[in-house]
Design a protein around this nucleic acid. Sequence first.
DNA 1: TTGAAAGCGTTACCAC
DNA 2: GTGGTAACGCTTTCAA
Lengths: 335, 335
Amino acid sequence: MGEITIKQLAQILKVSTATVSKALRDSHEIGAATKKRVQDLAKSLNYSPNPFASGLRRHKSNTIAVILPEIANNFFAQAVNGIDEVAREKGYHLLIYLSHDSSEREAFFLNDLLSRRVDGLLMSISFDASDFTHLDAIQQKLPTVFFDRTYEGSLLHVTNNDFESAFDATRHLYECGCRNIAFLSAFQTLKTGDQRFKGYLSALKHCGLPFKDELIVHCNNNKNDSYTRIRELMTEIKPDGIVSSIEKLAKQCYYVCNELEINIPGDVKIVSYSNLDSASLLNPPLTTITQQAFEMGKEAATILFKVLKNSNYKADSKILNAELIKRRSTDIINI
Amino acid sequence: MGEITIKQLAQILKVSTATVSKALRDSHEIGAATKKRVQDLAKSLNYSPNPFASGLRRHKSNTIAVILPEIANNFFAQAVNGIDEVAREKGYHLLIYLSHDSSEREAFFLNDLLSRRVDGLLMSISFDASDFTHLDAIQQKLPTVFFDRTYEGSLLHVTNNDFESAFDATRHLYECGCRNIAFLSAFQTLKTGDQRFKGYLSALKHCGLPFKDELIVHCNNNKNDSYTRIRELMTEIKPDGIVSSIEKLAKQCYYVCNELEINIPGDVKIVSYSNLDSASLLNPPLTTITQQAFEMGKEAATILFKVLKNSNYKADSKILNAELIKRRSTDIINI
DNA sequence: TTGAAAGCGTTACCAC
DNA sequence: GTGGTAACGCTTTCAA
């Protein structure tokens, strides 16, 4: 049974529960002999401490929460792997909440987490966020590290070099001959999206290309909607290059191009933020801005545990570099 | 503050903690007026119950654990989505554990879960499992539903029609002209892998093809190892068809074929169990046996909650049909 | 309809 | 070095 308690161990060994508790936690105030007796018995009886009792007493859960927009996405999945690595090493448990890019759900989760169920929170903000009061509130009450999708007010966070990587991607298209470069925008209310957009703008300027409003496509959470908008872009504006700020949209570009028989990279070159591990197997292989997903999760978790250990850290951050991996979707085609 | 307690509410309202507790849980033994007073105050003070205290008292956590081989895999990620949907609806929390296909880690997690931290468990067994005593033990002590990767001894489970789907895939290759069909095997110690293998064998027989040992490649957890073995298969045995029992291995086939300049589907046709959502964008688009990943998670969770509600269910199961989606990787090429 | 009090299993304080 | 005991915040008898 998993029903053995400290009290029972104490009875069997004819010592107090206090002694057992201390012996189990390897306290120095217990003699080596008793310590061994206790530990041996605990092991042989398969004792395992009740996390609720100790959580209640110690005001500590050994659990952290992770709030993600989605999990069926290689970036977030790998980030979870990174988080898991750190958490596991610290003996922590991982509670997962999926917002499905709804800030309403997000708010619900945040509210729930105020119950001191967890010691800390790692979070990547949902797509349609616009009101950040919940986020402001949570960071005051619970150690919270934002990663990837952060907002202006975040105290602790791990981000990409979003501005620079978007700049580089756009310039890369320019260097490959594109003069009419579209930008597929998402979550521009978040710092992350904003920075990517600014990087794009800055690169246009740097390359001497004019900014044209019709080249910007604001995509939302709705799959069909985005598809339609991208299709419109391709039929009406006909850009010769596309920078996609998220992977989902790049895939939709591929589908649209398939449907309309537009050749990539002949008619249009595409580069996208993406951690798709099959990017090189696509037709054509997709040029990606690949984020350090695993590292990002790992860094975020590391910062969180630093704060958990020493609550003086009020602000800390880290920037990881996303890498532009050039593949055939941006190849220069000689006719 | 998230620090309001029942005791404080009771003091403010000059009632007992018992009354407050009951009022909050909307008990019928409390008068409507007091009930309202309590609930209003609780709301205005942003009271949220301490989950450790109630968990300790009620021996119930409102949390379920999910043990997965990996998360950076579309199948498991979608399964988690399905699980999440059901759990959220029931107001449950989700604890995630990644075994990374190590049965050692798995055993560690299982042991930990004996602490009554969770009310139930959903699990997909790791790749290299061979000793099932831990699994036998856990299902006796904790309501546990296995999904996808199950084992012979599992009481509650949700599986694919593994035998039939492997049969159909193999026959499909035969019908496309393949006469030398290789099978990439994984987790054959599990029921899932075993059934897929048997489906393959049965289809060979059905089609009048001989079984040849050298056409079976046993792949393990090590990426380089598997790559080498597949490479050997392709250079030495040169099959004209491949059935891959997991997605990972199919990707490796693509890489090997790229390296060796083997044409798919001209030289070899490939079909794989896979939930890759970019399967149709690959070069060439991959014929897949696509599992109902989301449904699988959902069904598994549903069974678990049925058991949680009514502990009489000692055995229950469900089989979901995987679908063969034919794409270019198995096209018949006319020369 | 309400309340007093016992406990859930653990830890921490203080006395010995 | 060891033990008694009061808490942690909540739920659940049982009595009023």
